[in-house]
């Protein structure tokens, strides 16, 4: 979970940097719209994206189960 938290924080900060650079250059794109490359996705693409995101949770869940077993 710690690792996921770190990664998420990093992603938010990185998106912030990219938005900051947009801002410095004076592109009038609202913050949410700078996510626009993720807008237009076909179904296979979406499936791949969600699958990749799902894999993020495989490791934390497994180690959580392991801990539970060890406690017993």
């Amino acid at each position: 979970m710690k690792i996921l938290g770190i990664s998420l924080t990093m992603f938010i900060l990185l998106a912030g940097i990219s938005f900051g650079i947009d801002f410095i250059k004076g592109y009038k794109i609202p913050a949410i719209k700078s996510l626009n490359p993720l807008y237009v996705m076909e179904i296979p693409e979406l499936a791949i994206m969600y699958l990749l995101l799902l894999f993020l949770f495989v490791d934390p869940v497994l180690s959580f189960l392991q801990k539970k077993r060890n406690r017993k």
Binding site: I3, L4, I6, S7, M10, F11, L14, A15, S18, S34, L35, P37, L38, L52, L53, F55, L56, D59
Partner: peptide, 13 residues
């Protein structure tokens, strides 16, 4: 894996 995915999504946005 988590850092790789972070890089991937950052590269998109």
């Amino acid at each position: 894996y988590p850092l790789g995915i972070t890089v991937l999504f950052t590269s998109m946005v």
